[in-house]
C-alpha cells in the first residue's frame, strides 16, 4: 500500500516540476482523446438524430446492435482496425499504423456507438408533446428537430462526456494501433502499462492520478459550457 502514498507524492512532483516528457505525454493524451470525441460527436449525434426521427423497418434491431457495441472490447476494435491499416491490409497504403492519426481513427470508431446510441436515447426521452407543440406553433421539420435537440442537451452532453471517458481511459487501441512509441504515440494509459511491467509501481499510480486530474478538468470545462 505504501506505493499509493509514494504515487501521490510522485504525481505532485511530476506536476510541480512540469516534467517535459510527462507534459508531452499528457498533451498527446488530451489531443488524441479529444480529437476522437470531436469526430465521434460530429458524426454520431446527427446520425443518432437521423435514426431517431426516421421510422424504418428494422429500427429496433439496429438500436439493439448499437447498444450491444457499447460493450465491444477495445482490443477487438483495435484488432479490426489493425488488420485494416496494417501495410498488408486494405488501407495499408495510408501508413496509419503506429501513428497518432491511426489512434484517433480507431478511438473514434470505438466510441461512435456510445454517441449514436445515447443520442437516440436522449432524443426519444424528450416528450412527444414538445414535438407536437413545436409543430402546432408552425415550426418546420428542421426547427422541430432543433427544439427537441435543445430540450435534450443535458443528456447529449452526458453522451459526449461518456465517450470522452472511454477514449481517454482505454489501453487496448492505444497499444495495438499506437504501439506505445516513445515521443510519438505514447499516451498516459500505455505509459502506465509500460511502467508497471518495468516494476515502477509508484510511478504508475502517479500517472493514474494525473489522468484522473485531466478527466476532472475537462469534465469541469464541459459542465461550465453546459450550464451557461
Amino acid at each position: 500500500m505504501s506505493e499509493i502514498i509514494e504515487g501521490i507524492y510522485q504525481a505532485i512532483n511530476l506536476i510541480l516540476t512540469l516534467n517535459p516528457e510527462m507534459l508531452e505525454i499528457t498533451l498527446r493524451t488530451i489531443y488524441i482523446s479529444l480529437s476522437s470525441t470531436l469526430f465521434a460527436t460530429i458524426i454520431g449525434v446527427p446520425l443518432g438524430g437521423l435514426i431517431n426521427f426516421k421510422t424504418f423497418k428494422g429500427k429496433r434491431g439496429l438500436v439493439n446492435i448499437i447498444q450491444t457495441l457499447y460493450s465491444v472490447p477495445t482490443v477487438l476494435v483495435g484488432l479490426f482496425v489493425f488488420l485494416l491499416i496494417s501495410r498488408a491490409g486494405i488501407l495499408g497504403e495510408l501508413n496509419l499504423l503506429f501513428t497518432p492519426t491511426g489512434m484517433i481513427l480507431c478511438q473514434t470508431i470505438l466510441i461512435m456507438p456510445i454517441l449514436v446510441g445515447f443520442t437516440i436515447n436522449a432524443l426519444s426521452g424528450v416528450e412527444k408533446n414538445i414535438e407536437d407543440l413545436a409543430m402546432s406553433l408552425g415550426a418546420n421539420q428542421f426547427q422541430t428537430i432543433y427544439t427537441i435537440m435543445k430540450e435534450a442537451k443535458y443528456a447529449l452532453m452526458g453522451a459526449v462526456i461518456l465517450g470522452f471517458g472511454r477514449a481517454i481511459s482505454e489501453v487496448g487501441v492505444a497499444l495495438l494501433i499506437g504501439g506505445n512509441i516513445r515521443g510519438f504515440t505514447r499516451v498516459i494509459t500505455t505509459t502506465i502499462s509500460l511502467e508497471t511491467s518495468r516494476g515502477n509501481i509508484a510511478l504508475s499510480v502517479a500517472l493514474g492520478i494525473i489522468l484522473m486530474l485531466i478527466a476532472l478538468v475537462i469534465n469541469l470545462i464541459l459542465n461550465i459550457i453546459q450550464e451557461k
Binding site: 498533451l27 489531443y31 470531436l38 515521443g183 451557461k228
Partner: peptide, 29 residues
C-alpha cells in the same frame, strides 16, 4: 444554444490543431 455550440466546437478544433502541430513539430526530428 446553436451559436454557442458552434463556438465551442470551433474553439475545440483550434485547440486541437495547435496541440497537434506542437506535438508533431516537437516530437519528430
Amino acid at each position: 444554444m446553436n451559436r454557442k455550440f458552434l463556438a465551442t466546437i470551433i474553439i475545440v478544433i483550434v485547440v486541437l490543431l495547435g496541440l497537434g502541430a506542437y506535438l508533431y513539430a516537437s516530437g519528430q526530428g
